[in-house]
């Protein structure tokens, strides 16, 4: 009914309705309490804003994406301890490592996703930290627009599939199923690790009673003694990415890349700071209470 020109007004009415319905809905629900970045009306530029981004463009069977690889000086001495004292770990952790009788540095893969929010939304950044020839390497796969997600998932999936032990923060319930969903969406079989250590769970087991909470920021401050400058709050990440795709706001995406890299570094440090001995931890807890 709106194909005839005199009915341009109908089109405008539909447009109004689209806007209004969203407005009324925002009022009704707390989900959208915060107004996201203001809408602008200028023409959408081309979605690839690669020039100001680090890394280099790569291509695979599913398309192009951006890969940024950086060396990272990190201490992996804890690995020896982990192999020797694994019998003293908490039972859940022993189970997670069961399929890996001897963990080598080349098995390790720390990973962290940046996504557009809850399940069903796209992911746009997969950050991985691996050990290559005794040295840490940070690899980030970035989709510069929604169309590059498939290639990112394929590239990350290749890397992840070549590492037997995944280490994440809340990855067992969030990142890993999220990544598997996106693989299936693109017709890929999701990679499976031999073992997956979730440092959120591991931290809760150790410090639940000693810390106000076990968020990564809290652990960085009290366990690692790190002070991190404020960066993009997690809740704003999806909006920033959408703005980046639509407008080319590179500064926001750079900040998310840094944030993701820092999270991975903290995970590696946290792994080193994790007491392996269950008994010892219990006594510490008693002391702190006394």
């Amino acid at each position: 009914m709106i194909s005839e020109d005199p009915q341009r007004k109908s089109k405008l009415a539909v447009l109004d309705a689209l806007r209004n319905r969203r407005k009324t809905f925002r009022k009704q629900t707390s989900l959208f309490k915060k107004e996201n970045s203001p809408r602008r009306t200028e023409k959408t530029p081309s979605p690839i804003h690669a020039t100001e981004l680090p890394g280099r463009e790569e291509k695979n069977a599913l398309g192009t994406f951006l890969r940024w690889e950086q060396p990272l000086r990190l201490d992996f001495n804890w690995l020896k301890d982990l192999n020797q004292k694994r019998n003293e770990l908490w039972p859940q952790e022993q189970n997670a490592l069961e399929a890996l009788p001897q963990i080598r540095a080349s098995d390790l893969l720390f990973f962290d996703l940046e996504t557009c929010g809850f399940a069903g939304t796209p992911l746009f950044l997969v950050g991985c930290l691996v050990v290559h020839a005794g040295e840490g390497r940070l690899v980030q796969f970035l989709a510069r627009h929604y169309g590059e997600e498939a290639a990112v998932v394929l590239a990350a999936s290749d890397l992840m599939g070549r590492h037997g032990l995944w280490i994440s923060f809340n990855g067992r319930s969030y990142d890993s199923p999220f990544f598997a969903d996106r693989c299936r969406l693109f017709g890929l079989e999701p990679p499976q690790p031999l073992g997956h250590l979730d440092l959120l769970h591991a931290s809760r087991r150790r410090w639940k009673h000693d810390l106000p909470n076990c968020r990564l920021g809290t652990l960085e401050r009290f366990i690692l003694g790190l002070k991190r400058p404020p960066d993009t709050p997690g809740s704003q990440v999806p909006a920033h990415y959408h703005e980046f795709v639509k407008k080319g706001e590179v500064s926001n995406i750079l900040s998310i890349l840094r944030h993701n890299a820092q999270d991975l570094k903290s995970l590696a440090l946290l792994m080193g700071a994790l007491p392996l001995h269950k008994q010892k931890q219990l006594s510490q807890r008693m002391n702190s209470r006394g």
Binding site: L18, R19, F32, G147, K246
Partner: peptide
Amino acid sequence: LMKDVEDVVEVDGKTFWSSPEF
């Protein structure tokens, strides 16, 4: 119309949802 309200963007001939809303 959906492009006008910036709910979606077109990339390589495909129109993607481009808003943090569900």
